[in-house]
Design a protein around this nucleic acid. Structure first.
Lengths: 121, 121
DNA sequence: CAGTATCCCGATGGATACTG
DNA sequence: CAGTATCCATCGGGATACTG
């Protein structure tokens, strides 16, 4: 497993390591979609993420794959078909995402802000 | 409240917003220490974070303060004395940090890795 | 369809030194 | 003690265009 992200080499603690794993502009949302939809193709996922360029989407997916959160299945057909889905490992992080979302919702409210699009419930 | 960090303006969802709040090389650990020690002075905190420069520590503390996680109390004495402690708001995130840490510990074990320094329990 | 290839920018954070 | 001041390297990520 290569060193790819900033503080992977020497995680100060498991908590920091975990934060590093799900950092990334779209990772949380990607995991969320795979969690509720089960399996999605590349462009299907892409359509859910307005503003995300293919380049970045690929990158985030590859990182999630390296970290064993998701699997990438390539079907040898024309046109290409690639499916992404959560691993069992990936599913274990579901509760954390929910908790982050719940806490954040409360925080935004307490600060008089409002979540723009409720991508995760 | 000024726009300071990358995705504050339009959080895709509360979950992403929350992640952005506790992103930062040392924020998780800072919160953890304040959580268990209650109140700490600048250098006292600094000593717990080998590798963290004063410059960066100040920055992270200021951000945490802006986000209402901590308070900064300056005592008008010589030599200077400044204390940092969690707000009630800050304390509400404690359970999340624990959960991130617990999950991360399991993840590191399952991947055959080992947390370097167990900064958070 | 599922990506690559380039180019580019701003934010984050490290190193080092200095100060009221 | 609790910071500032500078300078600098890196990285995440955006824009745009192209392809097997």
């Amino acid at each position: 497993m290569p060193k790819r992200r900033k503080y992977d080499e020497v995680p100060a603690c498991a908590m920091v390591a975990t934060l590093n794993l799900i950092n990334g502009r779209w990772k949380g949302v990607i995991l969320y979609y795979l969690l509720i939809k089960g399996t999605m193709r590349f462009n299907e996922l892409h359509r859910q993420l307005p503003g995300c360029t293919p380049r970045l989407l690929v990158k985030q997916l590859r990182e999630l794959e390296e970290d064993a959160f998701i699997t990438r299945t390539v079907y040898p057909v024309v046109p290409p078909k690639v499916e992404y889905s959560l691993t069992d490992e990936g599913r274990t992080i579901g509760p954390i995402l929910s908790q982050l979302n719940d806490w954040g919702t409360g925080w935004l409210e307490r600060r008089g802000l409002r979540p723009k699009a409720a991508a995760a419930a």
